[in-house]
Write a protein that binds this DNA or RNA. Structure first.
Length: 464
RNA sequence: CGGGGUGUAGCGCAGUUUGGUUUAGCGCACCUGCUUUGGGAGCAGGGGGUCGGAGGUUCAAAUCCUCUCACCCCGACCA
């Protein structure tokens, strides 16, 4: 792709609405534009990244036996009334009426719909287990959208729902989803932690959250560098110097209210402010006794064991081998596509711009020609552009008639993993300056070594 | 929803306190021409806003008053 024929509106200045790097850089690099609070358009560059994230997720889901389908965004209220969530969800749900005044919502999640599908078509243990997923847009009227893509009102997520005969089978699928999520984040190339978490409005017995480590993360995590124990900070167990085991939640409730709370649960959050306590020196891992490290993370994935909460209410039952009618045992597994995009920027950037991991970079190589009007040089860069395309490299050739400085700045901002620089030096030595965005390192590359270089780069970064 | 803040050209801002001296200004971006091109170039010329919206006060409103809308931040809550 030639830069001059593509659409990449970059911004030189920091938009006043953006507070954190992922938001600011996504706007500046021409990935997204805001339409309304928490609602964004994806420009071509951002869209390419989205598609790459989706594809990695899709491959890993398919590899772990999940099957893709597509459920509607618009959902009738009747199903939600059966599960009681039409009321429970409250103002967070975007609601609308059709011409006949029937109630609908824009799906904030899809348990009701998928369970309805199971009710219709999963009648026998012979159909089980089955794990269905979709990559779909979701709508949640957040009380406070913020940080650009990190907390949007319209966002894309992959959600999977599994149906099993019993808890044992559920356990197997749960584990396979857990592993798939780890592979997804590893393939993308992000540092992350898996923590135990509460289940919230979705319900169910217990859950794991997948956190991408980042400075601006909304979640505080406790992590043991020695044994690998990790948990959300407020749920983390630690041993104080006194040797007494405690969880941070107990401590918080007691300290803030000044009184005991029998089940250690916070009942009315509005009653008092609830800042997490500052990490304490004496907090030690309850597993191995080593000092806990406090980190911040962005939640990108959440997996739940639902059990029969939805299947009971929506009457989704199957006939088991023993001839008995039983509710389907469910699990659900969500991972945020648009949120991963933001989290990746949040974790991988510097003061010049984004540093895309090669797995999801919009383009792998950016060719910069510093003096476009030299015919020898433009011939050479055209040739190199074609060579890279032939090698099946995603390359953005900056052929714009602008000063070299602009090309360099845009290149840093957008964050292509590799930059091929052709200028005066090339005219003399016939060597291309190849620069890595990751660490700024440069190597000199003869033209005929391009195939070998690309092959090695792809192999090292797991690209096709 | 409570508290705080901001709305002036595509983006970033000044002007608002003390209404008139501004045909509303600056930087960047944009258009034309020439010169430039290894880290956001130079000169010359040019286009674009009626000051978020509505109402009001006044001889006169970006500036004062009332209402309203949008957006951002903190909190509660949340993928």
């Amino acid at each position: 792709m030639k830069f001059s024929q593509f659409f990449i509106p970059t911004l030189k200045e920091v938009p006043s609405e953006a507070e954190i790097p992922s938001h600011s850089l996504a706007l500046r690099a021409g990935l997204i534009r805001k339409v309304a609070s928490g609602i964004y358009s994806f420009l071509p560059l951002g869209f390419r990244v989205l598609k790459k994230i989706e594809e990695i997720i899709r491959q890993e889901m398919n590899n772990s036996g999940a099957i893709e389908l597509y459920l509607p965004v618009m959902q009738p209220s009747v199903l939600w009334e059966k599960t009681g969530r039409w009321k429970e969800y409250g103002p967070e749900m975007f609601r609308l009426k059709d011409r006949n005044k029937r109630d609908f919502c824009l799906g904030p999640t899809h348990e009701e719909l998928i369970t309805y599908l199971a009710y219709l078509d999963l009648k026998s243990y012979k159909n089980l287990p089955v794990n269905l997923y979709q990559i779909q847009v979701k709508f949640r009227d957040e009380m406070r959208p913020r940080y650009g893509l990190l907390r949007a009102r319209e966002f894309i997520m992959k959600d999977a729902y599994s149906f099993c005969r019993n808890d044992d089978d559920l356990g197997i699928i749960y584990k396979s989803m857990y592993d798939a999520y780890c592979r997804i984040l590893e393939r993308i190339g992000l540092q992350y932690r898996v923590v135990e978490a509460e289940t919230g409005l979705i319900g169910g017995k217990f859950s794991h959250e997948f956190m991408v480590i980042a400075e601006n993360g909304e979640e505080k995590l406790a992590f043991c560098p020695v044994c690998g124990y990790s948990a959300k900070y407020e749920m983390s167990k630690s041993i104080s110097e006194a040797g007494k085991e405690k969880t941070n939640k107990e401590k918080t409730v007691k300290e803030k209210t000044g009184k005991e709370n029998k089940d250690n649960k916070i009942n009315k959050l509005g009653d008092f402010t609830y800042p997490y306590p500052e990490p304490e020196q004496e907090d030690r891992c309850s597993n191995c006794g080593k000092e806990l490290k406090i980190e911040k993370g962005i939640e990108v994935g959440h997996i739940f064991k639902l059990g029969d909460k939805y299947s009971e209410k929506l009457d989704a039952r199957f006939l088991d081998v023993d001839g008995k009618l039983k509710p389907l045992v469910m699990g659900c597994y969500g991972i945020g596509v648009t949120r991963i995009l933001a989290a990746a920027i949040e974790q991988l950037h510097d003061n010049k711009g984004i540093k895309w991991p090669p797995s999801i970079a919009p383009f792998t190589v950016n060719i910069i020609v510093t003096t476009e009007k030299n015919s020898e040089l433009s011939k050479a860069s055209d040739m190199i552009y074609k060579t890279l395309k032939k090698l099946d490299v995603e390359v953005l050739y900056d052929d714009r008639d602008v000063s070299a400085g602009i090309k360099f700045k845009d290149s840093d901002l957008i964050g292509f993993p590799l930059r091929f620089i052709l200028g005066r030096k090339f005219l003399g030595s016939k060597l291309i300056d190849v620069e890595y965005r990751k660490d700024g390192k440069r190597v000199e590359l003869p033209v005929d070594s391009i195939p070998k270089f690309i092959k090695e780069f792809k192999a090292a970064n797991n690209l096709r």
